[in-house]
């Protein structure tokens, strides 16, 4: 079975298949973003306490979810890459890191922009905010560690260890608002209850899914590029590149 998976995940096969999938991720991303913007600006109501500022949540929360989601994907891909030595898994982990870092930064900044008028401060060193900032540093550490090696195999190994160890931060971020007294509010959405009006929830979900599709498209695009670089000495890459030139 491993042989079969390895054949399917072969760089060449991936390059050809993924090219066809990207438009199918981009189309839902654009559609969901547009509907999501309409829902968050027009359909969803103002909050009884936060007033209109609640609308910041529709970018903040999906971005924060992405920061966790992408890290988990990155760590799992790193684990698969380490154990089964699948090149493509390492590539997915590597190209995910900058996207994850961007979403983490977006979550931190939009949170700050919401915090100023609502809490009365741009920043507080509470458990949630601090652990999310550590997540940003983990992404940046991963990126710089990967760049520090010339040999992609060594780089993959070293940075996957970092990605896997850093995984402990994820439950800390998620449960920080329950384990400690924090300034940040608790989760409104869990498997058991949704403490949110339905149109607010829909707006949140639309943008959240839009971001998921965006991430999928970006990972495929970036992974295709990485595949070309890493396989540049093989004939099929040469054929593609020379063909592009004609």
């Amino acid at each position: 079975m491993w042989k079969w998976i390895q054949a399917f995940a072969s760089p060449r096969n991936f390059y050809q298949t993924s090219g066809k999938i990207i438009p199918w991720l981009m189309a839902p991303f654009i559609a969901l973003s547009l509907i999501g913007l309409y829902w968050s600006f027009v359909v969803s109501p103002a909050d009884y306490q936060q007033g209109e500022s609640v609308r910041i949540m529709y970018v903040h929360v999906p971005a924060a979810w992405m920061s966790l989601f992408i890290y988990i994907v990155m760590a799992i891909a790193s684990g698969i890459g380490l154990i089964w030595q699948i090149k493509l898994a390492h590539i997915v982990a590597k190209v995910s890191a900058p996207v994850g870092a961007a979403f983490t930064l977006l979550a931190l900044v939009t949170g700050s922009v919401w915090g100023k008028p609502m809490w009365g401060t741009w920043w507080a060193w509470d458990a949630r905010l601090t652990s999310e900032l550590i997540l940003l540093f983990l992404y940046l550490a991963y990126i710089s560690l990967h760049n520090a090696f010339d040999n992609p195999k060594t780089a993959d190994k070293a940075s996957s260890v970092l990605a896997i160890v850093g995984l402990v931060n994820i439950p800390i971020i998620y449960y920080s608002v329950e384990w400690w007294n924090s300034l940040h509010q608790g989760s409104s959405i869990s498997t058991t209850k949704i403490s949110m009006q339905i149109d607010m929830f829909i707006a949140l979900m639309l943008i959240s899914f839009a971001f998921k599709f965006l991430y999928g498209a970006l990972v495929l695009m970036r992974a295709r590029d990485e595949v070309l670089v890493r396989e540049q000495n093989s004939r099929w890459v040469r054929e593609i590149i020379v063909g592009v030139g004609k």
């Binding site: 009884y48 936060q50 507080a124 607010m200």
Partner: peptide, 17 residues
């Protein structure tokens, strides 16, 4: 310094009333 905490409930004013 005084900071306001928000809870996890989000709803429109009519529902709150």
């Amino acid at each position: 310094e005084v900071l306001a905490k928000h809870d996890e409930n989000y709803m429109p004013p009519e529902v709150a009333d």
